[in-house]
Structures are given as structure tokens and as C-alpha cells.
Design a protein around this nucleic acid. Structure first.
Lengths: 150, 150
DNA sequence: TATTGTTATACTCTATAACTATA
DNA sequence: TATAGTTATAGAGTATAACAATA
């Protein structure tokens, strides 16, 4: 039996010692804030990512898109359906191979991408406001170098 | 109709320009690798986190634990059930308030924490091998400063 | 009335596996 | 046989809402 608890400060040094825990906390904060910024544009984080890659790689196939986004092909189907329904991309046909699609952005998709890119920049300006521009670059570069052992 | 695709390199500069995308990729890599390291100890990421906080804050209540981990109280119930079933923690009673529990680690829980701490350090040595010790410290510090606007 | 813990439920995200049509 | 896309299903992980016991 324990005496009544005096209100004492809860600490998490055991967890904060690890890079991973700080990364998780930061990522969840980013994810939530980003989702809010994208919602106004009718995009989710993954559909935003898909649109970004399709814009940059016109006529990419769904399988190649899956590889680029590191998700399964079955997940891409839903994603592409979503973007196609919103008239942001179209499933073009490939001459000489009727199995695959050639995904491209519509003019509306290009415009939406421009708007989304600005929205995400605004989101990052907000969520990383405590960091200087140089610190943000450093953070991005360090994160970009994290890789699983191959 | 598109001509047959020559195999061209897929790029993702549109996404890599953002800190958040690099963070997502890094976090997913960390999460997967960490899960593997913890599996051998019978812990999931969240139960590891809960154990860490209970060890550091003996006699913490479930509601306080929920706040510390930024999850809902309903989620803590499952987490605490899990740790209690494994005999790593116990639900102590509080003198003067029969609503709440006083969570504490058992000796086995203390031992498991020691092992888990080492395992996670080993995991981080592996996954962040491409970074110097100083870069890891920098990364941790920068991540720790990311906060949602209040 | 408010708080603690609990249960049931639902939602999001993603993976797995089996299938078809094409190559 | 292998590849592209599809569908159905299942599994994590987490949130929401309603509730009982206690304060």
C-alpha cells in the first residue's frame, strides 16, 4: 500500500536519451500538423506524396510509384483511385504493354501540386519555427542519412 | 497513348526538399529496426516506453502515464495489462484513493529494462552508424526542439 | 460533479495473399 | 513463368464514447 501521491513531476529521461524517441515525438507532431494543412487541399499525406512523385516522373507506372513511396502495389491502387477521382491525375495507356498504366498529372493536378507545395512549406515554417534555417537544413540532411543496414 | 517506357530513374526531389518527408522515412526505418531488437525481449515499442516511464517514476498512475506517453488512458490499460501479465510491473494500491493504481516495476521488470536499454542502444548504434557521435547528438537535440505551436 | 480505470467500438494505415490479364 | 494491377482481408496502432467505482 502506497501513501497518497504528492503531485510530483513526471520525467522521461529514460526515453529522451534515445534519438528514436525524440524522432517519434517530432514525427507525430509533424504528421498531425501536416495533415491539417493538407486537409484544406483535399489531400492526405500519402496522396500528397504520390502526386509529388507523379508530377516529377510523368508516365510512371503504379509499380514504380509503389517502389518510390516504399509501399505495396495494393496500396497504390487506392491512392491512384483517389487522385484520379479528384481529377488530379489520369491513368494513361502505354503503347506496347497493356498491363501497365502511365500516370500523369492533369492541369488541375499540376495546379494542386503548386498549392500543396506552398502549403507544406508554410506548415514547415510553423512547426520548425524554433529552428533556424540552417538548423532545419542540418536536420533534413541528418535525417536523409539514416538508413537501415542492407 | 504513351510510347514504351525506357527504364528511367525515378526521383523524389519534390518530397526530399521537405524535412518532414526525410523524417518519415527515417522514422519508419528506425521503427522497423527497433521492433526487431525489442521482439527478442518480449516488448513492443509502446510497452518499452511505458516500462521506461514506470521505472523512472515509481508509483505513477495510469492517467499520469497516459499523459507522459501522449496516448489515451484507454490505450494505457492494454499496455499495463501486457506488462503486468509478463510480471514486469504491478498495479499497487494507493492509500487514500481507491480509484487509481500505483504502477511499479517488479525486480524482473527492472532487469528487463536494463536489458532493453542495452538492446536499444545497440539498435541505435546500428541504425545511426552513418552518423558520427556528435551528429547523433545534434540530431537528437534538433528533434527534441520540434514542437507544435501551442 | 470530476476523476480513474475500463470496455467496446471504430478508424487509419498498411501488409498479405489470391486473383486476372497481359507479357 | 513473370509482371502489372486489382480485390479482399487482416493486423497494428490509436482514438472515441459510454460506463462503473470512487472522490
Amino acid at each position: 500500500m502506497k501513501k497518497p501521491l504528492e503531485t510530483k513531476e513526471i520525467t522521461d529521461r529514460n526515453l529522451r536519451q534515445f534519438v528514436g524517441y525524440n524522432m517519434k515525438r517530432a514525427f507525430l507532431a509533424v504528421r498531425e500538423d501536416l495533415a491539417q494543412h493538407l486537409e484544406a487541399l483535399g489531400l492526405r499525406m500519402t496522396s500528397f506524396s504520390a502526386l509529388a512523385v507523379i508530377i516529377e516522373n510523368p508516365d510512371i507506372s503504379q509499380s514504380r510509384l509503389a517502389e518510390a513511396l516504399k509501399i505495396e502495389r495494393s496500396g497504390v491502387v487506392v491512392l491512384v483511385d483517389e487522385l484520379e477521382s479528384a481529377d488530379l491525375i489520369e491513368r494513361g495507356r502505354v503503347e506496347g504493354d497493356r498491363r501497365q498504366y502511365a500516370l500523369r498529372a492533369t492541369p488541375a493536378g499540376e495546379a494542386r501540386w503548386q498549392a500543396a507545395e506552398k502549403a507544406v512549406q508554410a506548415h514547415e515554417d510553423g512547426i520548425f519555427a524554433a529552428l533556424t534555417a540552417e538548423e532545419r537544413r542540418t536536420l533534413k540532411a541528418l535525417l536523409g542519412r539514416v538508413r537501415r543496414a542492407t
